[in-house]
């Protein structure tokens, strides 16, 4: 297989902002909407995806010479399912509270498109180091996406940030006459509203950015 394609560092950086899974590729939207009402569940989900993506990308890259084109998706799914099940059992044993909160969303990481997309786009074609850096970069991008949404939802919905783990209160509990928490932010509609608004902000920044770049080239 050809070795050209983005280098390890390019892959890593691309995953974080330019090809951000949440805001640019718009992949993995099911967990993005479902588990972002607290920072704890968002970080647990991001950590699970990091583990599964790194393991399956590295393994896929190692066996890429043996893959038969028409059986590759089967191998990807098998690999991902095995690592997701390991992560699911691990959470049930060592982080039982989070395992209960996330419920079916951990097993559902198996069908998270980000992971199978990285196996197909990067790991099946490039070396182990590149695949590893790609997995870490994409996972960090996914983590940023989840954190941005969860930050807004948890602060507006509960008045806290990392409330269950660190107990940080952002909005003082003693001022109910000035502020009451927005229950809608905890419920599913809050996820759609937040994601939609953030996506709009991201597109607006991008549009402004490219307009300025265009003006600069015209002027030059």
């Amino acid at each position: 297989m050809s070795q050209d394609g983005p280098t390890a560092v390019e892959r890593f950086l691309n995953g974080i902002i330019p090809e951000n899974p949440t805001y640019r590729q718009i992949l993995g939207i099911c967990p993005t909407l479902a588990v972002t009402n607290t920072m704890e569940s968002a970080m647990t989900m991001a950590g699970t995806v990091l583990f599964v993506l790194v393991c399956s990308n590295v393994l896929t890259s190692l066996i890429r010479g043996l893959l038969k084109p028409h059986l590759r998706i089967l191998v990807f799914t098998l690999t991902i399912a095995a690592f997701v099940t390991i992560a699911d059992r691990f959470l049930a044993a060592y982080m039982y509270d989070m395992s209960k909160v996330l419920g079916p969303y951990i097993p559902l990481v198996i069908v998270n498109c980000i992971i199978i997309a990285r196996c197909e786009i990067c790991a099946a074609k490039q070396g182990v180091w590149t695949a590893f850096m790609d997995a870490v970069g994409q996972s960090l991008g996914f983590m940023l996406g989840l954190m941005s949404i969860a930050t807004i939802r948890e602060i507006l919905g509960f008045g806290t940030w990392f409330g269950k783990w660190l107990g940080w209160r952002v909005i003082p509990v003693t001022a109910p006459e000035h502020w009451s928490t927005w229950v809608i932010m905890i419920l599913p509609p809050g996820a759609f509203i937040t994601l939609g608004l953030l996506m709009g902000v991201m597109n607006w920044i991008e549009a402004k950015h490219s307009a300025r770049a265009k003006k600069a080239t015209v002027a030059a």
Partner: peptide, 26 residues
């Protein structure tokens, strides 16, 4: 299909090991 078969067996064994190790705790 040998790769699929080998991977299934390896993953199956690995998952059985994980389950056996973590079951009491769960």
């Amino acid at each position: 299909a040998w790769l699929v078969i080998v991977l299934s067996l390896v993953f199956g064994a690995a998952l059985a090991g994980v389950q056996a190790a973590l079951k009491p705790r769960i």
